[in-house]
Amino acid sequence: MLTISQVGRRFPGGTEALRDVSLTLARGDFLALLGPSGCGKSTLLRLIAGLDQPDSGHLRWDDGRPPAAGDIGYVFQDATLIPWASAAENVYLPLRLRGIPRDQAQADVHAALAKVGLAGFEAARPRQLSGGMRMRVSIARALVTRPAVLLMDEPFAALDEFTRNRLQLDLLGLWRDSGCMIVFVTHSIYEAAFLARRIVLMTPRPGRIDQEMQSSLAHGPETRLDPAYAALVAQITRAMEQALESAPGSP
């Protein structure tokens, strides 16, 4: 669906955020970009979204054109909701920006909120919601356009562990139902191992891909107790340690 070839990105000021990154993404993938801070995972996500352009290399979508507005959903670490608007108004925003009238969008907005378990909270303001519920609204906002690609930048990093576990499970359900491709940036080995089918290890300064690992876990509520999950976590941990040791300028 998307081919990323030898992409490099250097910021003004000289920081080399990405060097020689190549990756192929297929429809329906659930891919985790895993690595410590400063390894360029967020930069790579912004390049995929088209919010930033590479200095070298290129990104090529299957149909040759960058996706249209609404084909890509984006979820940030903070919920980044509009504080003066209700949950429903926040979810309506992507449709509104595409010129869809409110009454036509209403069914989609309600469905998206129901999908993330927030039916009945349409009128609530962001400040009346908990951190986990705000993140759910944010996910509903990203899903309301039924995107083919969902980009998530450490969306659960600021949540407590119980909320995070719950949302991870719900996200897997949403992924299975919607069939969209998810690129999930995280610095948590446990999260990457639990969620993703493909786990891409990245190392910092400059950000580059070290290796990719596959997961064939069942991905259910029992997965966290599965010895195969513990083995995968151990395998990733070992690989990550090796990668960071051999990487130049490692911490």
């Binding site: 912004r46 890509i72 992507p94």
Partner: peptide, 21 residues
């Protein structure tokens, strides 16, 4: 926050719509 401005860009909103909304 810049993320919110990015979101407007992602959905194809120009400067004027970002200003108004």
């Amino acid at each position: 926050p810049p993320e919110l401005a990015d979101l407007f860009r992602l959905y194809g909103a120009g400067r004027l719509r970002t200003l108004v909304l």
